[in-house]
C-alpha cells in the first residue's frame, strides 16, 4: 500500500536524491547508482591534488588555485559552454514515426516497477545538464500531462515482429520566410506543442531550431502557424445573411 502524497512531500524526489525510506526498489537502486557516481567524481578531484603538488609545497597555496584547473578538466565542455549541439533535427526525427508523432524515449528507462512519471519531469520539466549522458536535457512542452508513458515508449529491442511497409511524408522544411529575412512561420501544429520556449530555447533545444532571441517572449508576435503540410483552402467571402 502506498500513499502518493507522502511520497511527493519527500524532499528527495528527482535525480540527485538519496534513497528515502518511503521509496521502493527502483529509487533505492537508482539512488545508490547516483551516490556511487557522485562519490566517484568527488574522490577523483581530491585524489588528484597530492599528485600535482611538488614535494615540500603544501597543497592549497594560491588560494587553492589548482581547484580551478582540476574542475576545468573534470567538467565536460558541454556543461561549461551550454551548447553541445548533439541534439539536432536528424536525431530529433530519428525518434519519430512521422512529423508530429510522440518521440520514443532514446535512453534506457529502468524496467523496474517505480519508473513513475514524476521522475520524467525531474529532468524533462526544467531541463539542464545531465552528466550521465553528457548532454542537455530537452524540456517537455506539455508538463501538465502527467502520464508520460501513455505516449512515450523506450525501445527494448531493435528488431521488428514483422517487417513494416510504413511510409510517411517528409519533415517540414525550415526557413520558409515569405520575404527575404522575414520571420519564418511555424511549420507544425501547435497541439501539445504550444510552448515555444520549451523546445526552441535553451541548451537542450534542437540545434537548427534554437532561437537566439529568446528574450523576446511574445513569439507569436512575429511567427504565425502555417501548418505547411495541410492543403490551403481558398478563402471565399460570404456576406449572405446567416453567415
Amino acid at each position: 500500500m502506498m500513499n502518493r502524497k507522502n511520497r511527493i512531500r519527500s524532499p528527495q524526489r528527482g535525480l540527485s536524491h538519496a534513497p528515502s525510506p518511503a521509496a521502493g526498489s527502483f529509487k533505492k537502486i537508482f539512488g545508490s547508482v547516483m551516490l556511487v557516481l557522485t562519490a566517484g567524481c568527488i574522490s577523483g578531484i581530491f585524489m588528484a591534488l597530492p599528485a600535482l603538488a611538488a614535494p615540500d609545497i603544501p597543497p592549497g597555496f594560491d588560494s587553492g588555485g589548482e581547484k580551478i584547473f582540476n574542475r576545468f578538466t573534470e567538467t565536460p565542455l558541454a556543461a561549461m559552454t551550454g551548447t553541445d549541439g548533439t541534439r539536432n533535427l536528424n536525431s530529433f526525427y530519428e525518434l519519430r514515426q512521422y512529423p508530429g508523432s510522440p518521440p520514443r524515449i532514446p535512453h534506457s528507462v529502468p524496467f523496474f516497477f517505480r519508473d513513475d512519471t514524476a521522475d520524467c519531469l525531474a529532468c524533462h520539466g526544467k531541463g539542464g545538464y545531465d552528466a550521465r549522458q553528457n548532454t542537455y536535457i530537452p524540456v517537455t512542452p506539455h508538463p501538465e500531462n502527467e502520464n508520460c508513458l501513455q505516449c512515450h515508449m523506450p525501445r527494448r529491442t531493435d528488431t521488428l515482429f514483422v517487417e513494416t511497409d510504413w511510409q510517411s511524408i517528409s519533415p517540414p522544411k525550415l526557413g520558409r520566410s515569405q520575404l527575404g529575412g522575414s520571420p519564418p512561420p511555424i511549420p507544425h501544429s501547435l497541439q501539445l506543442r504550444e510552448d515555444c520556449i520549451a523546445c526552441h530555447t535553451g541548451p537542450g533545444a534542437v540545434a537548427e531550431i534554437r532561437v537566439e532571441h529568446a528574450s523576446r517572449g511574445n513569439c507569436r508576435q512575429c511567427h504565425v502557424p502555417m501548418v505547411a503540410t495541410e492543403p490551403l483552402s481558398t478563402f471565399q467571402r460570404n456576406n449572405e445573411p446567416g453567415h
Partner: peptide, 24 residues
C-alpha cells in the same frame, strides 16, 4: 544540419516517393 552532423540518418521512417508533402 547535414554537414554539421554527418553520419546520422534522417527521419526514422521511410519517406513517400512522389508525395506532395500535403496531408489532409
Amino acid at each position: 544540419a547535414a554537414s554539421l552532423f554527418p553520419g546520422i540518418s534522417f527521419a526514422g521512417w521511410d519517406q513517400l516517393e512522389g508525395a506532395s508533402g500535403m496531408i489532409t
